[in-house]
């Protein structure tokens, strides 16, 4: 698994270098490799399929405009996710300013990390995850679902790796506690 992650990261770095040289196919490769995990990540912010897809496009536009700010051979994913996160936060800020609220029926399923699948039935875990604060959800999704290290999570969110670890641990503990409480 660790080897796969390393190979995947090396492939992203190679694509990013080619993209910086003006290779359109490299951009397509990056888009293909990153669109699904980015959509999953964006759901922690907007929970609306259409908006998440719009934000994904906007994120890739921002990545394109900022492509010179990636310095090889640094890992690509923290760079990509940090920009995507900022796009999502700016969107939320605009929504708050306009006082726009998403209708409840638009809320999609919260992705469930594999570690949490056996805690209870999927619907319960999804509901409990959805009730967590966004900061906790974000760390859980990045680490447990998208497989980022806590160093990478810290770099994306702007916190120390230790804080990211504590945040993920507390969130998991909270979900477990709620499962036990509800079971009782």
């Amino acid at each position: 698994m660790a080897v796969d992650r390393h190979a995947e990261e090396q492939q992203l770095i190679a694509l990013m270098i080619a993209y910086q040289k003006g290779d359109a196919d490299a951009f397509s490769g990056l888009y293909e490799a990153l669109k699904r995990p980015l959509i999953r990540y964006l759901w922690t912010f907007v929970r609306n399929q259409t908006t998440a897809e719009d934000l994904l496009q906007e994120s890739f536009l921002q990545l394109h405009r900022a492509r010179q700010t990636y310095t090889p051979p640094r890992p690509v994913r923290p760079w990509v996710y940090a920009i995507t996160r900022h796009v999502a936060l700016m969107h939320l800020r605009t929504m708050r300013r306009r006082k726009e609220i998403m209708p409840d029926e638009d809320l999609p399923e919260v992705p469930v990390p594999p570690e949490m699948d056996q805690l209870a039935d999927r619907a319960t875990v999804q509901r409990l995850l959805g009730a967590l604060p966004r900061a906790a959800q974000e760390v859980l999704i990045l680490h447990h679902l998208l497989g980022m290290s806590f160093e990478e999570v810290g770099a994306i969110v702007g916190i120390s790796p230790g804080t990211a670890k504590v945040r993920a641990h507390r969130a998991l503990k909270k979900v477990r506690q709620r499962v036990i409480e509800e079971g009782a």
Partner: peptide, 21 residues
């Protein structure tokens, strides 16, 4: 495979860039 708006934006501005030092 990329949405039209994004594809056009990329195609219109795909010159090589020098990475940040």
């Amino acid at each position: 495979a990329i949405p039209n708006g994004l594809r056009e934006a990329i195609e219109n501005d795909l010159q090589p860039v020098r990475p940040l030092h």
